[in-house]
Design a protein around this nucleic acid. Structure first.
Lengths: 125, 125
DNA sequence: AAGCGTTATATCTTTAAAAATATAACGAAA
DNA sequence: TTTCGTTATATTTTTAAAGATATAACGCTT
C-alpha cells in the first residue's frame, strides 16, 4: 500500500472520486467525444439536425457547426445533409458514423473501468 | 481485430490521438487536478500565492479562490497563509499537500499510460 | 407555382467567465 | 511608528462563449 498517508487528507464526511473526460483529437483539436456521439445518435433517430438539436437543448447553429467540423475532419462524411426535398429535407448519418460510434462506446467503457478502478483505489487506500 | 473498419474514417494526412482530462472530485465538484497541482508547487517554490499566480499568468484572486477551495474541501489545510509579518507574509504548503501531489503524479502517470495505449490501439487498428 | 420543413448563414443580444482595478488589513522588522 | 510585501475582499471592466433572432436557399410534393 503506497499511499496510506493520503487517508488523513480526505474528509470522511465527503465522497471523493476520480472523474475525467475523454475524446479523440484530430490535429490538436477535438474530433469525437460524448457530445458529438449523442448528436449523431439523435440525428439518426429523428432524421433531422434541427430536431436533434432541439432534443438536446442546443441551438441549430451549434449543432450544424459540430457536424460540419466532423465532416471536415473525417476522411469520409459522417452525416449526409439535404436542404429541401420531401418534408423539407433532412440528414442521415453514414455507416462510417455508426462504426465510429461503436468504437467510441467501447473506448468509453474502458475509460469508465479505469475511473472506477482508480476511485476504488483512492477510497480504500 | 475488432475495429479494422474504423481505418477508412481517419484521414491519413492527419494525426489522431486519444486525449482527456482527469481530476479528483469532492461532492460533485473539482477537488484536485493539474491546475491546482502546479499552483501548489509554485507556492512551495516561491513562498507566495502572489508570485505563484504571477508565474502562471493567473490573477491573485483566482489563485486565492483555488487554494481556499482546497482548504475547505480537504480534511486538513493544504496551504498555510499568513498576511503580514516578515517580508509582508507568505504562504507555505503542508506535508499533506506534498503527499497529495505525489499521489496525483502517480495517478496521472497511469492515466497517460492509458491514453498512450488507446492512441496506439486507434492508430494501428 | 405554391407550400412545407429543412439546411445554411449572418447578425445581434445576452450571459457568464475572466481579468483588471482598487483598497484595506496584517504583522514582523527596522 | 513607519515600511514592506503579502493576504483578503469588493467592485468594475473586459472578453469570450453561448444564445437568440432573422433571412434566404433548397428541392420534393401537391
Amino acid at each position: 500500500m503506497s499511499h496510506k498517508s493520503i487517508k488523513s487528507i480526505l474528509n470522511k464526511k465527503f465522497d471523493y472520486k476520480i472523474n475525467g473526460r475523454l475524446w479523440i483529437e484530430c490535429k490538436g483539436e477535438g474530433f469525437f467525444g460524448p457530445g458529438r456521439v449523442e448528436l449523431l445518435q439523435r440525428i439518426d433517430k429523428t432524421g433531422s439536425i434541427n430536431k436533434a438539436a432541439g432534443e438536446m437543448g442546443m441551438s441549430y447553429k451549434k449543432a450544424w457547426e459540430m457536424i460540419n467540423a466532423l465532416n471536415v475532419q473525417a476522411a469520409k462524411p459522417l452525416v449526409i445533409m439535404q436542404a429541401g426535398g420531401n418534408r423539407g429535407g433532412g440528414s442521415v448519418i453514414t455507416e462510417e458514423a455508426k462504426k465510429l460510434i461503436a468504437y467510441h462506446d467501447q473506448l468509453r467503457q474502458r475509460f469508465i473501468s479505469f475511473l472506477e478502478k482508480e476511485t476504488q483505489n483512492l477510497v480504500t487506500l
